[in-house]
């Protein structure tokens, strides 16, 4: 009924709908869509050299930039690093976020002071990533950084200072840790709000049936949280694929490329050395394709299931009505 009402009201106002989206559409076309197309085109050209804006389409093999990027050892390493660092950050992150969610939403054994814990756990997420990268660089510095001070003089775990910056493994772990540390609070809040959205009747029924806290968490909370968990997974993956600030500023992708991510690689190709805009564009488009696939999954997950079902139902009704009308006119 509501839709019928609004339809009557707004027929004469349809033009304002178009009018009000003009600023968005214009700015989107100029500053977002055009650069996307431009990047795509540049991937097929010979455009390189500082601030060079003249280019020609490649003659012969038009995919030459893509081929050279895919064969580039440094790019392969960067993609591998991106995935490894993302997994090293995501698994502990989601595990801890789930544990905290279970604690903070438990109804029998409640945690006091939840509010303040949430505020503290989320805080690193809001602080400039650039600042955090430099801060951790200072914290892990050799030989007299705070972490080394703690490990040697304060706790006496190590005899001498450890140089975190020359170890490939340590560097990867630290970058992954920073990512984990900045994001677990965010993931926790998303999961908690997901749990609060679950119908409380289900929990009450479980209580009556005498289920314990662990059973409730694994048999009710997790199955009902599937969509939210997938949302977290996909958004985190997209963010992880674009990891730039922390690996770039913590050790500039080093040591020996061990923390170089795909975004750092693209930045280095395009804005340093030989300024290979064309190859950087090709690499960007490869990332773009991967992200578009991830987005598509998310889009599918978040689509309005109820609205889609309703539209389908209405369509069927209309068809049936048309059929009835048809058969009546036949008669």
């Amino acid at each position: 009924m509501k839709s019928a009402q609004s339809r009557i009201k707004s027929i004469s106002n349809a033009k304002y709908g178009y009018l009000f989206i003009i600023p968005f559409v214009l700015v989107y076309l100029i500053f977002h869509f055009y650069p996307t197309i431009y990047t795509t085109v540049l991937g097929f050209t010979d455009c390189k050299g500082l601030n060079n804006t003249e280019w020609n389409l490649l003659k012969g093999n038009i995919f030459a930039n893509y081929q050279s990027i895919l064969q580039n050892k440094s790019f392969q390493t960067a993609v591998k690093n991106t995935i490894v660092i993302w997994i090293m950050n995501f698994i502990p992150q989601i595990t801890l976020a789930m544990l905290l969610t279970a604690w903070f939403t438990a109804r029998r054994i409640t945690v006091k002071g939840q509010g303040i814990f949430k505020v503290i756990f989320y805080m690193p997420n809001i602080i400039t990533a650039a600042t955090i990268a430099i801060l951790f660089h200072a914290l892990f510095s050799y030989p007299t950084g705070p972490v080394n001070d703690l490990l040697t003089k304060r706790l006496g775990i190590l005899e001498g200072s450890y140089n975190f910056f020359i170890s490939k493994t340590a560097s990867k772990i630290i970058v992954a840790f920073i990512q984990f540390w900045t994001w677990y609070g965010y993931t926790m809040i998303i999961l908690i709000s997901g749990v609060l959205g679950i119908n409380p009747d289900i929990y009450e029924a479980a209580d009556i049936d005498g289920a314990n806290g662990v059973q409730i968490f694994f048999r009710i909370t997790i199955p009902n949280l599937k969509t939210v968990l997938l949302f977290t997974l996909v958004t985190s993956l997209i963010g992880g694929l674009n990891m730039f600030d922390i690996p770039k500023l913590y050790l500039n992708g080093g040591p020996d490329n061990s923390t170089k991510t795909a975004s750092v690689f693209i930045y280095e190709q395009a804005f340093s050395g030989k300024y290979l805009y064309n190859r950087a564009s090709a690499a960007s488009m490869l990332m773009f394709i991967v992200i578009a696939i991830c987005s598509a999954i998310l889009f599918y997950l978040m689509r309005d299931k109820d609205a889609a079902a309703l539209a389908k139902l209405k369509k069927q009704e209309r068809k049936a009505a048309a059929q009835r009308a048809k058969s009546q006119s036949w008669r």
Partner: peptide
Amino acid sequence: LMIPPQVTSIGM
């Protein structure tokens, strides 16, 4: 929604 500005930065 999810397309990060980074991937189109060269064209930008």
